[in-house]
Write a protein that binds this DNA or RNA. Structure first.
Lengths: 117, 117
DNA sequence: ATTAAACTTAGGCAATCACCTAATTAATGC
DNA sequence: GCATTAATTAGGTGATTGCCTAAGTTTAAT
């Protein structure tokens, strides 16, 4: 039986993809203030509920939101870890970029003082 | 007619969208080490050059990469500001989430000490 | 003056995305 | 039991994405 499953896309793909939409970012933003039901989350948006639910599914698939259903009400909450992972990736790139700038600065200072000999 | 998002798409859309692809993240990663030409950047990837160039265009449109052409060679470099903006958004969400946790913690401590009266 | 190198443009194709409406299911309230 | 509420499923549309090949264009090297 050949392995027909697509290679497991690293979680960053899904996380950044999820963050690339203003509706979804607004949901994340709302959830940082605490859990909310689907209706509460959907309230502010003009779009039809099924459309909104697709956004919610993208967020859940990305691991940034989890939800549980009680009776007929689904309550969502944020899971900060995956969002943090994305933040971590960005921080890492910035750190590398800055360390390069630091070395460049050092170098420029050095040739300048050499010139001044 | 999809995506009824607020007319002037905020730059975060494009930035996160650009980061949602492993090829493009790898390019960003490479550019944190310093400028590079299109061929140098494309080298590690299997895809055809025009395909790669589309990725580069997405990165440029997002504002995270800029480039200049000299003779027949285009040299790209990272512009860290827009990447930082994305990092800033994430940091902000985390901060709000954590401050809420802090308040929740306070509250739980308070009712506990009240119980212990 | 040719040829080669480094992109660039044009066009095409399948898959995914972001929306929609309509119909359904599963609790709750009366 | 029957209507209402909350969410879900099914299915459809047009736009965008991510890849491709083929055919330019603009330098640079010989």
């Amino acid at each position: 039986m050949p392995n027909n499953s697509p290679p497991p896309a690293p979680p960053l793909d899904g996380i950044f993809q999820a963050l690339a939409d203003p509706t979804r970012r607004a949901v994340i933003q709302r959830l940082t203030a605490g859990p909310a039901t689907v209706s509460e989350l959907a309230g502010p948006f003009e779009m039809a509920l099924p459309s909104f639910l697709q956004h919610l599914k993208v967020l859940e698939d990305s691991g940034m939101v989890s939800s549980t259903k009680k009776g007929r009400v689904r309550t969502c909450e944020i899971d900060i870890q995956n969002l943090s992972a994305a933040g971590g990736w960005i921080d890492h790139q910035r750190a590398i970029w800055e360390s390069r700038l630091g070395r460049l600065d050092n170098y420029l200072n050095e040739i300048q003082s050499t010139e001044n000999d």
